[in-house]
Amino acid sequence: MNAHFATTRWSLVRSASLSPEPRREALSELYTLYWRPICDYLRRMGISESEVEDVAQDFFIGFFESQSLDRADSEHGRFRAYLVGALRHHVQKLRRKASAQKRGGGNVALPLDALDQSAPHEADHARLFDLEWAQTMMAHSMARLESETSEQGMDAAQTSALIHGDATIPQREIAARLGISVTAMKTRVFRLRRRFREILREEVSRTVANAVELEGEMAYLSEILGGPVA
């Protein structure tokens, strides 16, 4: 997974609607960040597994080509909320189309009955979408950190063990393996944890417009993942 993002921010997302080159770039970045939450959202909405990826791709292309980004104004809330709205709208559109085709005879297999009866409430869909977004943020951040620490000779398990408060591999053991003192190890742990927070903030900041919103998103991310309340 490519976990590096150069300058993707809300502002860039907005600019993506203006010229073709940054647009493709933004598309790629949004793909990475939101692909999984969107696919999972679609699955929960009852889209069959074989069609989920096609539907998601259609949504992305439609989202970009329909000038939706122009309407995704930074002044009007979080991009993620906007995206969920657009997705909901896209599914409703699909349902209507499917319903018409059912009446008129189409061949899209959308089990509308099941969708209507077993799908969770709309608010839960949004929350699950957010949870998956938050987990993606964490996974991306962790992957970036591991890629950085691998350059210092640490493997992913060691990085994870050190950054984790309750490590399964003792710090003393890792220090001995890396040939450094326990004090140096503790310093490294502090820096690792600090770096993780930095990366996480960077990742989240890509989807927000300003510092106030960033703090809000960080707090929300922690809350939704069950982390400490800031």
Binding site: M138, E146, A156, I163, H164, L225, G226, P228
Partner: peptide
């Protein structure tokens, strides 16, 4: 196994997002 929250996987191994957020938090 500490907080019962589903683990998140990254690069082929799983971690607990809640625990990581706690251990990396400077609060307290």
């Amino acid at each position: 196994e500490h907080c019962g929250v589903p683990l998140v996987s990254a690069e082929g191994h799983a971690f607990c997002a809640a625990c990581i957020l706690r251990s990396t938090s400077l609060a307290g």
